[in-house]
Design a protein around this nucleic acid. Sequence first.
DNA 1: TCCAAATACTGGTCAGACCACTTGACCACC
DNA 2: GGTGGTCAAGTGGTCTGACCAGTATTTGGA
Lengths: 239, 239
Amino acid sequence: MALKPVSRRLVPDEVFDQILSGVVDGELAPGESLPSERRLAEVLGVSRPAVREALQRMAQARLVEVRHGGSTTVREFRRSAGLDLLPRLLVRDGELDLAVARSILEARLAIAPEVATLAAQRGGADLIERLDEAIAALEADHDPVARQRAALGFWDHVVDGADSVVFRLMFNSLRAAYEPALDALAVLMEAEVSQLDAYHKVRAAIAARDAALARAATEQLLRPATNSLISAIHDLEEA
Amino acid sequence: MALKPVSRRLVPDEVFDQILSGVVDGELAPGESLPSERRLAEVLGVSRPAVREALQRMAQARLVEVRHGGSTTVREFRRSAGLDLLPRLLVRDGELDLAVARSILEARLAIAPEVATLAAQRGGADLIERLDEAIAALEADHDPVARQRAALGFWDHVVDGADSVVFRLMFNSLRAAYEPALDALAVLMEAEVSQLDAYHKVRAAIAARDAALARAATEQLLRPATNSLISAIHDLEEA
DNA sequence: TCCAAATACTGGTCAGACCACTTGACCACC
DNA sequence: GGTGGTCAAGTGGTCTGACCAGTATTTGGA
């Protein structure tokens, strides 16, 4: 049997999630005022500090605006929220949001080649070593989920090699969106992580410090799965 | 005289910033344990709820890990933090971090053409209208800062046209990093926002639904300022 | 009619208490 | 020499209730 840690939901987390859902799912319209902290605490049956903690986290995510003395209002999250909201948008009521998934695939295909380009220009010998290790792990693992993790490790090192704070943080955010759904997605992405020769080509291009080739090889690696998944999503959206 | 709102720093914000600085500036090493909430409250001279609120926000940003019953430990923020940390990394002790600025310029140059491509494929007639309005604002404004805002508005609409959640959220995060420093950066970016014909070309390519042309025009618009600023940064880093 | 003071909200902060959990030490048992 | 039980100390989790500090609204004069 597969044991996993029991999850004890904390009170402020629960409150946060409820308000977040209200905002993201549109039950709370932008500009609308939330009930006061005291009222929320009463309605939810929790203490005011718990409500307050949740609201402050909502404010940090730029989903609501808290004004001392005034009421807390809902912001237009599409215009204000940061990339860290992505995990919550990708899975909605336990289901994948297809439009969001498509968007992630597009962004991945657009950005990864740029990152590989930078890595080819800037990476050192240690980067190549780590890429080799990652590819070895990819070859060794046969479980689809484990291979996904190995592939993530490969890109992790490529991102390191690119020496770009922005791409690093983007990768972290995208990874945070991808990993919770990894189990479900592993089978869909299996075709990609099986293309070991394609990974080798990316590695070789980076090792040769050939930026253009690194870009091309990366696109070649990602394009097939991206295209087939996006067209599959398109078909699903039709139906 | 130019009056500006007095900033009333809230207690939990202040605590949050102090701990954040400790983590980001490396005073607190990854894996290190923070003092207990009670101890922090005592040392900082604030109440425990205030400390707690700050720590929970740190945890939400994936900068620390809070374990019930155990101690709160510092995470390796470069590997875990999301794109929303960017504003804090860009300005450090009131100074621009040049490596971060370079990274932003690179990412912008890499991503904007992709976004313009998507906008050309998906944008509707209303998008063109809004782009025209934005360009008109760009032509009307002569104050450098106002022109920067107008340019941001232009790209805002392009991102809308791309109809991509991921790029939308990325734009929001990047904008959140850029806007606080906008006053300081306006003069550096002035050359770019003066290229009105280049903006017109991007708009025309999107209106013509010519994806390849939109990509090229966008790159042509962004490349000059990007290159000159990056080389300027390079020179500064040498010195 | 208009403006300013009073008032009734809102969020901001604090103190102190108690619960729940983890850790580590100690100890009895096999 | 392990195994598991017990306990105490320290940690985060949560609540209550109070008061401070702003904002919005009402109200009562001028």
